[in-house]
Amino acid sequence: MKAERIKSIGIDGLLKNNPTFRLVLGTCPTLALTTAATNGIGMGLAVTFILICSNVIISLLRKIIPGEVRIPAFVMIIATFVTLVRMLLDKFIPDLYESMGVYLPLIVVNCIILGRAESFASKNPVADSALDGLFTGLGFTWAMTAISIIREVLGAGQLFGITLWDFRIEFFTSSAGAFFVYGLCIALFNGAYTKIESKMRRKRFRSLYEAPLGEETLQAVAEQDTSVKEGR
C-alpha cells in the first residue's frame, strides 16, 4: 500500500468527498440523530463499522457477483451486517440502541454505504476498499458530531449529556432546526473548503511555473488552464 494512495483515500473520505457536507448522502440519519452528540457519534461509528465490513466483503466478491444483480447482492450483504450490529447493540449497549430507534435498521438503505459499495468497493481491491470504508465512515462521524454539538449546545444547553446552562432555543432540536443547521454547515464547510483549495492550488502551480530566464512573467492563475493538469 503506497502512502500516497492511503493519503488520497483519506483526504477523499474525510474532506474532499465528505458524505455529509460534499456528497450530501445519508441525510436522513443526519437530520434525525444529531439532536445529541452521543447519538451522533454512536450512529457514525455504527455506520463506519458496517461500511468497513461490507466494503471488504463486496470487494472480495466483486469478481463473482454479476453486474445485473449487484444491487440486490449489495443490499443483502449490508443488511446482514446491519442486523449483526443491531443484535450487538441491543445486547451490550441498550441505551444507544433505544435512542437510535428506527434509524438503526434504516442504515441498510443508507445511501453512503450503498454508494461507496457501488462506486468504490466493486471496482477496487480489498485493502483499498477497507480503507475507503474507514475514512468515509470517519468523515460521516465527524460531520455528524459537528452538527450535533451545535444543535445540542444551542437547543438543549447540554454537551454530551452534561448540562451547561439553562437557556435553550428549542428551535434547534426540532426538525426545522435540523435542516437549518445542516444547510448552514454545508455552506460553511464548502466555503472554507473552496477557499483553502484554491489557495493550495495557487501555491502548487506557482512553484511549477518558475520563470526560467527571469523575464517571463507569471501567468495569472485565473488564466491558466488548470482543468487538464488536475487529474493525477
Binding site: 444483480v69 447482492a73 442486523t83
Partner: peptide, 25 residues
C-alpha cells in the same frame, strides 16, 4: 445470478441465526 444470490442469502442466514442464538435478549 440466481446461484449467487441464493448463496449470499444462505450464508447470511446461517451467520445471523448463529449470532441470534448467541446474542438473544
Amino acid at each position: 445470478c440466481i446461484i449467487v444470490l441464493m448463496c449470499i442469502a444462505l450464508v447470511s442466514g446461517a451467520l445471523l441465526s448463529v449470532c441470534n442464538d448467541l446474542l438473544k435478549v
